[in-house]
Simulated scan of single mutants.
Amino acid sequence: MSVQLHEDDMMKYITKEIPPYPNPVEFCVSEVAHVTDKKGFKGILALEKFNPPDSEFSWWDLKMNKKEIKSAMEIYIEKNFPNITKAEKKAFLEKFTTSPLFKLQESRYGNYRFTFPLTELMQWYKEQNCGGKDPVLRVHETITYKQEIVYTVLIHSPEG
């Protein structure tokens, strides 16, 4: 019974009327964040690294600030809708930035947030996991949850 309810909720979520997302919009993101609970926080401090005990993956979110969102949308609008009014532009931006990713103070994953420049995280990964070689980035999968859709990118060593 509960499985059917979950499937019904998922279908309702997936089939919800959503306006087409502007494509392609390119975000220039400079920071990433890892959010965890108290147990994860203590583990990170004890090990002095992000090494999840129950998973082979360490999950990070892009940290999107209002300036980066506005810049991406402004460039998109200028290229595709040069005659749009200021009021239409504001409504356009707000419509596509409602995900928790765009709300920096909210998280369903815990109250402890580690934020780093993406370049630093990649450098640490290179040193700790790749023997000094550049890590490889590739699209991993899309995961559909009840409250979000997650697009994942896998970072791994060149040998992996």
Rank of each mutant, 00 (worst) to 15 (best):
N23T: 09
K42R: 13
P22G: 04
P20A: 08
K66V: 10
E17T: 14
E17P: 11
D61N: 15
S71H: 11
C28T: 15
P53N: 06
I69Y: 03
S30C: 10
K70A: 12
K16W: 03
D61V: 07
Y21V: 14
F27E: 05
T36D: 00
K66H: 12
E68C: 08
K38C: 12
K38Y: 15
V35C: 09
D61S: 15
P53Q: 01
E68I: 04
V35W: 02
K67E: 15
D61R: 15
E48P: 04
D54G: 14
S71I: 03
K42C: 10
N23L: 01
W59K: 07
G40R: 00
S30D: 13
F50R: 05
G40W: 01
E31L: 07
E31Y: 11
E48F: 05
K70Y: 12
K66Q: 13
P52Q: 02
M73I: 05
K39E: 15
Y13E: 11
K67W: 13
K66D: 12
N23I: 06
T15H: 09
V32Q: 02
E56T: 09
K70N: 14
S71P: 07
K38S: 14
A46S: 09
A72P: 01
S71Y: 10
F41G: 00
N51V: 11
P22H: 01
V32W: 01
L47M: 14
P24C: 03
L62K: 04
K39H: 12
A46V: 08
I18Y: 10
S55E: 02
N23Q: 08
T36Y: 00
F50Y: 02
F57R: 04
E31M: 11
I18F: 14
W59C: 07
P22N: 06
N23F: 08
K49L: 07
I69M: 04
W60Y: 06
P19F: 04
D37A: 07
P20M: 06
N65T: 06
A33F: 02
I69P: 04
K67Q: 13
W59L: 09
W60I: 00
T36L: 01
E74C: 08
E56R: 14
P52Y: 00
K39D: 15
K39G: 11
Y13L: 09
Y21C: 10
N65E: 10
P53M: 01
I14A: 06
N51K: 08
M64Y: 13
V35K: 04
A33L: 06
L45R: 08
E74V: 08
D61F: 15
T15E: 10
H34Y: 00
N65P: 06
M64A: 07
P19R: 10
D61W: 15
V25S: 00
K16Q: 11
I44C: 05
I69N: 03
M73N: 02
E17S: 13
F27H: 03
K16A: 13
N65Q: 01
L47S: 15
T15V: 07
P19L: 08
D37G: 03
P24S: 07
G43I: 02
K12D: 12
S30G: 10
S58I: 04
